[in-house]
Computed example of a mutant assay.
Amino acid sequence: MTDLVTPAPAEIPKHILDIWVIILIILATILVMTSLLLFPAAAVIIYRIRTYPIRSSR
């Protein structure tokens, strides 16, 4: 007797990506978004340190 609730193995959809690929994509996205936030701010801080009037007069 077959169970009508449980699908047959052929009917279960296979995942397109493995779980480790999904985790790598999420981590790469977090890394890219963090760098987009931090690099412009760091560039402004470095620019202001390099062009500070007291330091450049020496």
Rank of each mutant, 00 (worst) to 15 (best):
I30Y: 05
S56P: 00
L36W: 14
L4T: 15
A28C: 12
L27D: 02
A8R: 15
V32D: 06
I54M: 11
S35L: 15
M33P: 01
R50G: 07
T34V: 09
I26M: 01
I19Q: 13
Y52W: 09
I23R: 01
I45Y: 10
P40I: 06
P7Q: 03
W20C: 00
V21L: 11
I22W: 04
D3M: 10
I25E: 00
L38E: 03
V44P: 00
D18G: 02
L38I: 07
L31R: 04
I22R: 05
P40T: 08
T6Y: 03
I25S: 00
Y52K: 07
I49S: 06
W20M: 03
T2W: 03
V5I: 09
A42N: 02
A43W: 08
T29L: 15
W20L: 03
A41H: 06
I26V: 10
I46K: 13
M1A: 13
T34L: 12
A41M: 12
A10P: 00
L24Q: 05
I49Y: 08
I46P: 01
I45F: 13
D18M: 00
T51Q: 01
I49K: 07
I25K: 00
D18I: 00
W20F: 01
P9L: 05
T51D: 04
A10Y: 04
L31N: 09
T6L: 09
I23W: 02
V32N: 06
A28F: 14
L24C: 07
S57L: 07
T6G: 01
L31T: 12
L37E: 08
V21R: 05
P40S: 07
W20R: 01
A28V: 11
P9A: 04
I54P: 04
E11H: 14
R50K: 15
D3T: 12
T29R: 09
I22G: 00
D3C: 14
V44R: 06
D3G: 09
L27Y: 07
I45N: 06
I54E: 10
K14D: 02
T34P: 00
W20Y: 04
Y47Q: 06
V21F: 11
I23G: 04
E11K: 15
I45D: 03
I22T: 04
S35Y: 14
R48D: 15
H15E: 03
P9K: 06
A41R: 10
Y52D: 04
I12F: 01
A8P: 07
I22V: 12
S57A: 09
M33H: 09
I12T: 01
V32Y: 11
L4G: 10
R55I: 10
L38Y: 06
S57I: 03
V5Y: 06
M1V: 11
T2K: 13
I16C: 10
P40E: 08
I49H: 01
L4K: 15
W20S: 04
Y52N: 09
L31H: 07
T6W: 03
S35R: 15
K14C: 04
I16L: 13
P13W: 02
I30H: 06
P7A: 05
I12G: 00
R50Y: 14
S56C: 05
A41K: 13
H15R: 08
I22H: 02
I54H: 10
R50Q: 12
L24S: 08
P7S: 04
I30K: 06
S35F: 15
R58S: 12
F39D: 02
D3I: 11
A10Q: 08
L38A: 11
I30Q: 06
E11S: 15
A28M: 14
P53R: 12
I46L: 14
A43G: 14
T2Y: 05
R55N: 09
